[in-house]
Design a protein around this nucleic acid. Structure first.
Lengths: 252, 252
DNA sequence: AGCGCTCCAATTGCATGCAGTTTGGCCTTC
DNA sequence: GAAGGCCAAACTGCATGCAATTGGAGCGCT
């Protein structure tokens, strides 16, 4: 029997949603790097909509954590700190353990075939760019979440997976995706077999190793924002009076 | 040592954010029941802003799952199905186990005092309305999440806790909050003692029992939307051709 | 050069206006 | 009296316009 009865969860076809999807994809494929500016005007013009719509889309993406919004400032693609990246992975591990726990032994043959087909696609994409491989790997996890047919779970897994994607582009060294693909296959096998404990363990290990491979170390030099680095020092000052520094250069 | 260095995570003071906060609170205190209509005009007038802003706020709340938005239709306070409510609690259990796992043994004396003070407040509020008790209980959990100082975790725990709040107002029988308060105290004690496994178990049991006390059973009668009830039946029909019924009366 | 100042283009925050869609009542018809 | 069609009011989807804020170029001073 299928994990649950099917139901639609796709986003509506508002102009706002269209822009959200486009930006989301651009971000996770690293066409837009973390820190990239996203002026409302430019987005509106690019997508043929008014600034109102672009603004609304940015609001949605900010709610998902993909975009940072500060009052009266240009929106930028989010630049998670190393710690936030690690936190995201920790949350992701728990959520996806829940996913596979619900799914173990409950998948139809068709669903298993769909999963295998996806991993095949990942395999074929191994020659391509890293960005595509990462996107496909992420989509595998989202596909799993969809099969639980819990819209809330889908939403959270998707969001946190996208965030992880984002951090991979920030902190990851060019990494081989082969073992990840094998781990995907192992997860499918354990799901089919119905061994919940085993598949939870597999998923945990899989995500943990992806995180460890990517988040090499708290390398404060690489892509970190100066203010983040100084934050712990500033915290020791009375929070109102900010330390006066000789012109802090923020990354453009 | 504190769980982590402190940092601000509060929402900005946009008009949009103000409206979001107000609506969120109104919803979780059941001033706005699930299904209540939220026309943009009315909200704008009530809060002294334009429809644009009200609309944006509704978009944010929809992203949090507190509001349902359908194209060209009046926004309504979300009406989660029983299954969605159960899913929300399942996710919440995992997230909050993560919270206490990170917090066990890492709290400062000041933080423990803050937690105790909050539970004292819960105690004092026992005479008041159920809505206030539920809100305070929820805020205890959010306070815990804040102490991890992981913004992502705070966001997810808050969201899912609010959603649970919402479902409590839908499905819960008037329930006594006393045992919940005692469980909160037990969690604080275990956190102070630093017994991670124990406190995870406590949190799991606490949330599970809240869920079980509230989500008594798949009672299709109470507050459920007629279309939800009929959904499983409709699923057995070819999905395109909808069963013709003699004028379905939706809850107004 | 390096630092501080002023001013203007770029950009956001928000309200309003118009067009298209839905809703709910009324009227006709059976 | 019930079913169905019609129409106005209500409401949303979206673009545009205006005021306020920002940040960076240019300029003078040390």
């Amino acid at each position: 029997m299928a994990a649950r009865a099917s139901s639609k969860t796709s986003e509506s076809s508002d102009k706002v949603s269209v822009i959200c999807r486009a930006l989301r994809r651009a971000i996770i494929e690293q066409a837009l790097e973390p820190g990239a500016k996203l002026p409302e005007d430019a987005l509106g013009e690019r997508f043929g909509v008014s600034r109102t719509i672009a603004r609304h889309a940015l609001g949605q993406l900010a709610a998902e954590g993909l975009v940072e919004l500060r009052r009266n400032r240009i929106a930028v693609v989010a630049t998670p700190s190393w710690q936030e990246a690690r936190d995201a992975f920790d949350i992701r591990i728990e959520l996806e353990r829940l996913v596979v726990r619900q799914l173990a032994g409950k998948l139809t043959k068709a669903q298993i075939a769909e999963l295998n087909a996806h991993v095949d696609a990942e395999d074929r994409a191994r020659g391509g760019t890293d960005a595509v491989s990462i996107r496909l790997a992420t989509e595998f996890h989202i596909l799993l979440a969809h099969m639980t047919n819990s819209p809330i779970l889908v939403r959270y897994v998707s969001e946190v997976a996208y965030r992880c994607c984002l951090t991979l582009s920030l902190y990851s060294r060019p990494h081989s995706t082969e073992c990840a693909i094998n781990e995907h296959r192992a997860i499918i096998a354990a799901l089919a077999k119905g061994d919940a404990a085993k598949v939870m363990e597999l998923m945990h290990h899989h995500l943990d190793s992806v995180a460890n491979r990517a988040l090499v170390a708290p390398t404060p030099q690489r892509g970190r924002d100066l203010l983040d680095i100084l934050a712990p020092y500033a915290d020791e000052v009375t929070s109102n009076r900010v330390v006066k520094l000789p012109k802090i250069a923020r990354r453009g």
